[in-house]
């Protein structure tokens, strides 16, 4: 990254605030459509952080796959199950929410303590960052990550077939009467029925 240090830190801070704010909006807002659009905001902000971390290809893939495919898919699902149902009130629901919040804050405290006290083996940054990450990723994909790459293609095929089968509307067709069609190949008389052998 050719930006100055201060610029990097400031843009990281702005992007982090955007990520956290939009993620909280996804979780806390009551309208599901607003949540879906804020989810797109989360993805775009995260792709900005990827660019700060010298990963241009993954940033582009993030925007293409997440914003272009997953978010649109979620919007379609919201449209297909569009039912403004008022969920029935559950007793003592706030206890559950409070307990979950407590657990999440505790988990965050645990993780951040772990992050801060672990001595990470930081590698020295190279003088010039990798000019072309696509070439490096492609070399990895076709040499030492070849088997996971092929398995990922099989996984995508399985997911596609499975999604089609699961989401297909079960359609029971009317029983059709077979009309004999007269073509040039039709026999003028029906072939003789096979005589059932009696046992």
């Amino acid at each position: 990254m050719n930006l100055a240090e201060g610029v990097q830190v400031v843009s990281f801070g702005v992007l982090a605030l955007m990520v956290l704010g939009t993620a909280l909006g996804v979780v806390l807002l009551s309208n599901i459509v607003y949540s879906a659009f804020l989810l797109g905001g989360v993805f775009i902000s995260i792709s900005g952080i990827y660019i700060l971390l010298n990963a241009d290809f993954v940033a582009a893939a993030q925007i293409l796959v997440y914003v272009g495919a997953v978010n649109v898919l979620i919007l379609f699902a919201i449209m297909l199950v569009n039912k403004n149902e008022d969920f029935s009130e559950l007793p003592r629901r706030w206890i559950r929410k409070a307990a979950t919040g407590l657990v999440c804050v505790g988990l965050f405290a645990l993780l951040s303590t772990m992050v801060l006290i672990t001595p990470w083996a930081i590698a020295p940054q190279p003088e010039i960052p990798l000019a072309n990450t696509i070439v490096t990723i492609g070399k990895h994909l076709f040499s030492d990550f070849l088997l996971p790459f092929e398995i990922a293609s099989v996984l995508l095929l399985m997911a596609m077939v499975g999604a089609i089968i699961l989401a297909r509307r079960d359609f029971i067709p009317e029983p059709r009467v077979e009309e004999p069609i007269a073509t040039a190949l039709t026999l003028p008389e029906r072939p003789r029925e096979l005589i059932k052998s009696e046992k």
């Binding site: 290809f57 993954v58 893939a61 993030q62 796959v65 997440y66 495919a69 997953v70 898919l73 979620i74 379609f76 699902a77 990723i137 994909l141 990550f145 996971p148 990922a152 996984l155 995508l156 399985m158 997911a159 596609m160 499975g162 999604a163 699961l166 989401a167």
Partner: peptide
């Protein structure tokens, strides 16, 4: 990149 692939497949099947 692999995680993004799996996430896309998971989203399709989940929906």
């Amino acid at each position: 990149v692999f995680v993004i692939t799996v996430a896309a497949a998971e989203a399709a099947v989940g929906l």
